[in-house]
Simulated scan of single mutants.
Amino acid sequence: MFKSFAGEKNLLKISVFVALFFAIFGVVWGSLVSSQIIFFDGLYSLVSVMLSLLSLLVAQFIKKNDRMRFPYGKEMLEPVVIIIKYGVIFLLCIITLITAIVSLLSGGQDTRVGPALIFAFVNTIGCVAVFILLNKNKDKSGFIKAEANQWKMDSLISGAVLFGFISAVLISYTPYEYLVPYVDPVMVLIVIGYFLKTPIVEMTKAFREVLEMSPDQSIEAKFKKVITPIEKKYQISESILRIAKVGNKLFIDIDFILGPQSKMVTIADQDKIREQIIQHTRDLVYKKWLTVSFTNDKKWAQKDLA
């Protein structure tokens, strides 16, 4: 666990420092060359820095053992932070989108295309490198996955900017040179329009975790596949499976309802069943909170008693 956290912590630090560099680079360079898209790229990186710092602090807090105050762990903070992160990104996208529309309607943006092209090239290479690093380790935690998504967005933004400014340079040598001022705000509209989907999707997933809704069907199917042979072996009439994913932890609640035909299930048998369930779901890379109960009366499995 310590090594896993150390890896997570180091990756988040890399994300913070590189994002800080590109934030300063983008905001300053965007102002100098009068480019909305570069300024947005830098501002996005600056927001990423603050949000990455928040992720790092919360990740450290979650790892601290405090069973007395948080008997079920602190993983709920992970989806809450992810909602905050993508909520801020969504707001930033909306504000930038409105600014681009205003600029487009007022005649475009007079941008110094040559220096802007240099920034776009350097930024694209750097963002892609960080994204590849984080994406290789995204299964370590929800925080790293969120960071990888942020850098994926930034990489695609930078790539779109690079393509846009190359197009602007080519257009400037044609009779359509008058269109060059419109390239910058049009790129903003295209990039923002495409990326609005990501924060909406990720916030929806995080809200599902906060509400402790069922995870992906594949996870539930995996546990049902393990439970079915156990039911047959002990002639268990019915079982009720409940799963909730919160951050990097799965809460699994299984109630086996025994009938008159069921075989005797000793305490030793129950522990073997628990071990079997854990062993056969090791490929699910989550921490697991497993509760397995046995009862003759289904009412004790309903969990909504007054």
Rank of each mutant, 00 (worst) to 15 (best):
Q109T: 15
G159V: 06
I166L: 11
L92S: 14
V161Q: 01
V88Q: 03
D154K: 03
V81M: 10
F131G: 07
G126L: 09
T111Q: 04
G108Y: 11
G142P: 08
D139Q: 09
M76N: 14
I84R: 03
I125T: 13
D154Q: 14
I95F: 13
V113G: 05
L77M: 13
P115M: 07
V88A: 10
I157E: 08
L117E: 05
A168I: 04
I171Y: 04
S167F: 05
L97P: 01
P175L: 05
N137S: 06
S106N: 14
D110Y: 10
D110I: 10
D139F: 15
I166P: 00
F165Q: 02
K136N: 06
G159C: 13
I144P: 05
F165V: 01
G87K: 09
Y173L: 07
S103H: 12
L77E: 09
Q150T: 09
I95G: 11
V161P: 00
Y86R: 02
Y173T: 07
F163G: 06
L156D: 00
S158N: 03
W151D: 02
G107N: 03
Y72D: 10
I84V: 14
L133Q: 11
K74L: 04
I144A: 08
C93D: 08
K85N: 14
I132Q: 04
D110V: 13
I166H: 00
R112T: 12
N135Y: 07
G164Q: 02
I157V: 12
F143N: 03
I98T: 11
A129H: 03
K145R: 12
A168C: 00
V80R: 04
I125E: 11
L104T: 00
V102E: 04
G107H: 05
L133R: 06
V80I: 13
K152P: 01
F143G: 03
T99L: 12
T99R: 12
G126Q: 08
K140M: 11
Y173V: 11
F119E: 03
S167W: 04
V169T: 13
C127L: 06
G107L: 00
S106A: 12
K145G: 13
I171C: 04
T99A: 14
F165I: 02
G73Y: 04
C127E: 14
F121W: 13
F119N: 09
I132K: 11
N135G: 02
P79M: 00
V128H: 09
I83C: 14
F119P: 10
V128N: 07
I95A: 15
G108E: 09
P115Y: 12
A129S: 12
S103Y: 08
Y173S: 14
D139N: 12
V113Y: 03
G73D: 05
V122Y: 15
C127A: 15
D154H: 07
K138S: 12
S155F: 03
A148D: 09
Q150G: 06
S106I: 05
F121E: 09
I118M: 13
S155G: 01
K136A: 02
V102F: 06
G108H: 03
L77K: 10
E78Y: 05
K85Y: 03
